[in-house]
Design a protein around this nucleic acid. Structure first.
Lengths: 238, 238
DNA sequence: CGGACGTTTGAATGGACTCAACGCACGTGG
DNA sequence: CCACGTGCGTTGAGTCCATTCAAACGTCCG
């Protein structure tokens, strides 16, 4: 299939692999043709809040493309500890597997639309459409970079800094950030945030207290946080 | 280009994307033809111990394929903290970039041979050879999984467990593990290990003390550690 | 023999954790 | 409409572990 002009333009701007990433939340853009091709081999699925998309150690035959909503990808360790590796949004791909089994679990945090892509069919499609495969390459590379960011935040910051960093990450998602009012609407509860940042729920709570005390945020409700964007940014940088 | 029988066999075993990963250290295997094609567009480079492959924030025009040796990929944060994100070995790809600049720094830990692959030429090659692009996709996915592993280890284990986990990781590399004698030869100094595991150098030292005290390892010299492989594995799992 | 660097060990500090109690919002049923 | 229960969030007290600062130790190389 010949590439569309639009696709080429987009690629020319963002760069190929390795990706020249726009702001971390943005992603490789699939063209309309790409999407049609993927829908041809995939099956749409709608998940409600708390529904499981796939389960760690479960037989893995599909990869998933998130079309709307939020997906929480977590891993359970042998000692019973849960770790959230990523939150996925529209355009993200998930379903990492090893030896035919999913490595992690994925759960929808709200009503979420995904496209299930059978592994074998996807292989064939990607091989026949190098441009599409390249989009996937860019997506995975972006995911890698996102994970690296988390890794760094996790091991270098104290609890308040981690929390500040998370709040700034939230501002990248328009659905959950009112830029005019500077208000973040949290999409995860305290325990989820804790497992994402490598903290306990109580510490997340206390970290919010510290930030509020410092005047960097104001608590509107448990799920709504007003932020002083630039001061918060400065706080994380320093 | 028609795929070789060998390539198809290998792929049939390991699976396409998302990769069915063999032991974590192994990687997508490039065929001889792949390598020839890459050498056609790339330039071989030899690095001595401590030589920089590329620098964080430096202009990024090349991706690198490690052909032998060890590469340490690290990131320096604004607050002066250094984090080691990965050690790369033969067959690994590195050079993640954003906006035309490298995101991390890469340094050789010993004599290291790499193939520098100009970004634009690589783009063209990958698009013209879907099978080769797929190998890269697998490599990046493997890298993502490796980073996830590190992330989990980092936030769930205490210092001795992190250290034990690192030692087990070392056993995957034949050049640095004498399986018969059960002796690991560390390829990084205490500070590097510390920055990889999110600890201080002193804590790494103490963690080794704890493991030795528990009879899980024996210190032969600062860089050579005898290990009780199965007991160590059991220690990490539990 | 001395110096430099990496490693180990010690003592004191601090930050996050656990355990526990309390507060708050929501929903249900009387 | 109020009483009650439940789930989540916050707050408090005490403990533990990694860190920092500091000094001693070792080893390799001049």
């Amino acid at each position: 299939m010949a590439p569309s002009a639009r696709r080429l333009r987009i690629r020319g701007t963002n760069g190929w692999f390795p990706p020249t990433l726009p702001p971390p939340h943005e992603n490789a853009v699939l063209t309309q043709e790409d999407l049609v091709a993927l829908e041809g081999i995939g099956q749409a699925r709608v998940l409600g809040t708390g529904d499981t998309m796939y389960e760690q150690d479960g037989a893995a035959d599909m990869l998933f493309l998130v079309q709307s909503g939020i997906v929480r990808v977590s891993h359970l360790t042998a000692d019973g500890n849960r770790h959230i590796l990523a939150f996925h949004w529209q355009g993200d791909v998930c379903g990492l597997m090893e030896d035919g089994r999913y490595v992690n679990s994925a759960v929808a945090l709200c009503e979420t639309h995904v496209l299930g892509l059978p592994r074998v069919a996807l292989q064939g499609l990607l091989l026949s459409q190098p441009l599409l495969q390249n989009e996937f390459l860019v997506k995975v590379a972006a995911d890698l970079r996102k994970t690296q960011r988390l890794l760094i935040a996790l091991s270098s910051f104290d609890a308040p800094h981690k929390m500040a960093s998370f709040l700034l990450e939230c501002t990248h998602h328009e659905d959950h950030y009112d830029a005019a009012a500077q208000v973040v609407t949290l999409f995860a509860d305290r325990k989820d945030i804790a497992d994402y940042l490598g903290l306990s729920g109580e510490t997340v709570s206390r970290a919010l207290g510290v930030l509020a005390e410092a005047g960097l945020i104001r608590r509107i409700s448990t799920r709504r946080i007003g932020i002083e964007f630039s001061r918060l940014r400065h706080y994380v940088e320093a």
